[in-house]
Design a protein around this nucleic acid. Structure first.
Lengths: 348, 348
DNA sequence: CTGTTAGCGCTTTCAC
DNA sequence: GTGAAAGCGCTAACAG
């Protein structure tokens, strides 16, 4: 037995074509400096043998794996799924493959994932940090000499470039919009307030409320339908029931909507509803739900582009440049006016 | 300059620890046959240097990349996103990473993706074939000596294992259910009838209709809201307006729902609606929409498990076994009874 | 234009 | 227990 691997090797091709290995190498790398005749012959042999270059071997020399890593909390989440789709497209356009790993927002899992990706010697990394503040993450990322771009949440105190939605201004706009509709008691409904994005959104809400000299009412207890029901019920039964809800994320918006629907509370009549982040059926439900829309694709695209720029610069200069983007790049959000805030009269 | 790579090498570790490379190799591979003292010392050096084994080099010897490829039409699609999530989890549990590529259901892109994955020498492949019938795909897959499992759609005339939903029986059940509700004119609304899944679902519809001695009414023209509107309007204005709609996929169900809502047609009063494939807000909209639910996670899990079994067998026996699963594995679907078919009285 | 050759970082006999 | 040495498949000088 000569070879047990199912894949023919470059030198087999060389032998069969009656040329040196260098020539074959040149052929598979574009075919420069090879005579047309030889080129054609080698190409034919490659076809015949179904030869496919072994990337591991190329990597061992060239130091590029043509793979980038994407580290997200979840793939099933529509937001991150869209990110993944865009990133994979741009990776492909740059002759790279995409390895996806999921963290479930757990810092330990995240570090594990990163170490695995480092083992795989990915050329670069796009990451949605489980915890923006984590020192362990910052250190790891600063240590590895590899282009990294953060998405959706920055890495605090680090030089790592990041692309995020303008959560603060988005939330401020949302809240202000509710106020402009004449609402005086706007409650901010939210869960997990440890996440960077959520904290920013709460700040935006606060800012709008304060500049309108209203009282902030923040309920951070929503994590499922049950808790949403309890929260809303309590608020409604209280001394000063709210007349509007600003919810800081998708699932919260949906729970709130379901509770309101269940209790037959008129929306936007009795309570106006405005959520952060758009979702597929927001315009299909009745009333349709107004939201702050994040430019998901743009965020992912921008991040991927920055990553490949860094990769390119690195290859040209031979060493890592300091980030051109020390500050998070904030992408504009958009207010989508539908019925639940009182903008569009209900159709049916 | 000695080393420009940011990563220390095994032999650097060996030198610094004052041992041979073999020993270090043993340490990073579990530490068997190494004295506790040496082991501890080497481990310390590894820590200090932040040494991470280079997978490319290991691969070059051991012939395993610890990566598997997933080829799907889209990542943004919830169905495939869920698949990806599950597959990545199982890959991780088997010490492998997941490379995801997307085809947009285009056969050419699919072949390209596969070739790239082969270059990367992935250990195995999970694929959602763009076209079940494609001979090019079948040949490529049969040629490469690598475990492959198809998901959602089988690869026709090949020995490749596949895990799919039981589309035919699911659709038959759906249609029968509508008939059981006393509906006599059940229309099947669909688009792209070239896809395996859709064809199967149409067959299931046919089967149910025929055994009830009713007339099949199939409209394959739905691809967006506009076409759905036109289709439904035409049907409704025709001589024998339908009293029920069975839609073969998510987007079609949603378009149909929106059209019905827009025209203020009572559901399920005038027209009952039942769709194939569940979706997030199906129970939130009013009326809530009854659907045939596919066991997405189970399908993906089963496929991934089979893949890793094959991988394991291959490693043990040193060669590829013939598939233990020549026939597609069909996973049971489930009828979720909600309001739109007439099962659950509307709440609000 | 083309071939020879020396490794890339690791695993693995095989001898000590 | 441990190490020396021979490659895995490929690229990149360097010499023809």
């Amino acid at each position: 037995m000569k070879r047990n691997s199912p894949h023919p090797t470059l030198s087999q091709v060389a032998r069969k074509a009656g040329v040196g290995t260098t020539t074959v190498s040149r052929v598979i790398n574009g075919g420069d400096r090879v005579s047309p005749k030889t080129l054609a012959r080698v190409r034919r042999v490659i076809e015949t043998l179904c030869y496919v270059p072994n990337l591991a071997a190329q990597t061992l020399k060239g130091h590029r794996t043509k793979t980038i890593g994407l580290v997200v909390p979840s793939i099933a989440d529509p937001f991150f799924a869209s990110c993944a789709e865009v990133v994979q497209a741009i990776a492909r356009a740059n002759d790279s493959m995409l390895i996806v790993t999921v963290t479930a927002n757990d810092s330990r899992t995240e570090i594990e994932n990163l170490n695995l990706l480092i083992r795989h010697r990915v050329d670069g990394l796009i990451i949605v940090p489980a915890n923006s503040q984590s020192p362990a993450l910052r250190e790891l990322l600063d240590r590895i000499a590899m282009p990294v771009v953060a998405i959706d949440r920055p890495v605090a105190k680090s030089a790592i470039a990041s692309v995020v939605a303008d959560n603060l201004i988005g939330a401020q706009t949302a809240t202000q919009h509710l106020i402009d509709h004449g609402r005086k008691r706007v409650v901010c409904l939210t869960g997990e307030s440890t996440l960077y994005t959520i904290r920013e959104r709460i700040s935006g809400y606060r800012k709008a409320i304060e500049s309108a000299h209203l009282t902030p009412i923040i309920d951070t207890s929503v994590k499922d339908y049950k808790s949403a029901e309890y929260a809303i019920k309590s608020l409604l039964d209280g001394p000063n029931p709210p007349d509007a809800i600003f919810s800081t994320k998708n699932s919260t918006t949906i729970y709130a909507f379901e509770v309101l629907q269940r209790f037959n509370i008129s929306v936007p009549g009795t309570i106006a509803l405005l959520g952060f982040d758009d979702f597929e059926l927001a315009s299909t439900v009745r009333p349709s739900i107004s939201v702050i829309q994040q430019p998901v694709e743009e965020i992912a695209r921008r991040a991927a582009e920055i990553l490949f720029e860094q990769l390119f610069d690195e290859r040209k200069t031979g060493s890592r440049l300091f980030s051109k983007h020390p500050q998070p790049i904030r992408m504009h959000t958009r207010l989508i006016q539908r019925s639940s805030c009182g903008c569009v009269p209900q159709i049916s």
